[in-house]
């Protein structure tokens, strides 16, 4: 048990050290949602009218509406970035070092997932702090509630990245997957527009958005930021986490997994 926790600590520490060494990555992760918040939201403020729907008690600005979605965006991009680094690790060989450690493989993958989640949350917190300075302020309790919500959402998106990384053979293939995963997941969700608005555009579009696990992750964060629990969203997010994890474990199973397809001599 102690050995497993030590492994968790060093895997998180390694990820943090690498992250701190890549300042560009941190800046990019922050600039992306900030551009949406400061430019996109300002431009669309007038175009997109919002009605009062829970958890909001009053009319809110569009900037306020998209903050949880942009937190989700950070987690989504970071989850994919972590899986990208997994594919890189595999190509560079350091994945072998991890997978040959004397720990159950599921635990090693879970540690990787936790490490990615910690980095994601740090970025989301930095973004919330900047939004606060910009004047978009949530109740103080909301910031506390948001931490576990961000954690669950980060785990779900990290697990998705992990699952994807187990099926991607080369770094080159990753760009396509990013386009087919990140953009549909983000735009077909409640991150930028509420679901009722989607219904106006079309029933099918609304149903796709409602089924998208990213929508539920965003709603979980949205309610948490107002110190409210959204249990259906939590259930959906946890179920998606379990499904993605099961896929990842299958992909990394030594009896069938990635190394088999790549081994040469």
């Amino acid at each position: 048990m102690r050995a497993a926790l030590v492994a968790l600590r060093v895997i998180v520490a390694r990820e943090a050290l690498r992250f701190l060494g890549q300042r560009g990555r941190f800046l990019a992760a922050l600039v992306r949602p900030l551009v949406w918040l400061l430019v996109f939201a300002a431009g669309f403020r007038a175009a997109l009218g919002l009605s009062i729907t829970p958890p909001y008690q009053t009319y809110i600005t569009y900037e306020t509406y998209i903050v949880p979605g942009l937190c989700g965006m950070i987690l989504l991009f970071n989850g994919m970035q972590s899986s990208l680094s997994l594919v890189y690790d595999r190509e560079m060989g350091s994945m072998r070092l991890l997978l040959t450690a004397p720990q159950p493989r599921w635990w090693l993958l879970f540690c990787k997932l936790m490490a990615g989640a910690v980095i994601s949350i740090l970025q989301a917190c930095a973004f919330l702090a900047i939004a606060w300075l910009y004047g978009i302020r949530m109740p103080w309790a909301g910031y506390l509630w948001a931490l576990p919500a961000l954690f669950v959402a980060a785990l779900m998106l990290g697990a998705l990245g992990l699952a994807l990384s187990s099926f991607i053979r080369q770094l080159e293939n990753f760009a396509g997957v990013m386009n087919f995963v990140i953009f549909p997941m983000f735009f077909l969700s409640s991150a930028l527009y509420p679901l009722w608005k989607m219904k106006e555009a079309g029933r099918l579009l609304h149903d796709i958005c409602a089924a998208n696990p990213f929508t539920h992750a965003v709603e979980l964060i949205r309610f948490a930021l107002y110190a409210e629990a959204n249990l259906p969203a939590l259930g959906w997010t946890l179920a998606a986490t379990a499904a993605f994890l099961a896929l990842a474990l299958r992909g990394y199973d030594p009896a069938r997994g990635l190394v088999r397809r790549r081994e040469g001599g």
């Binding site: 050995a3 600590r9 060093v10 895997i11 390694r14 050290l17 450690a101 004397p102």
Partner: peptide, 17 residues
Amino acid sequence: LTVRQNLRYFAGLHGLS
């Protein structure tokens, strides 16, 4: 990472700290 950091990471994977 430094040589020591690399070895520390590996030691941790083996439960040593």
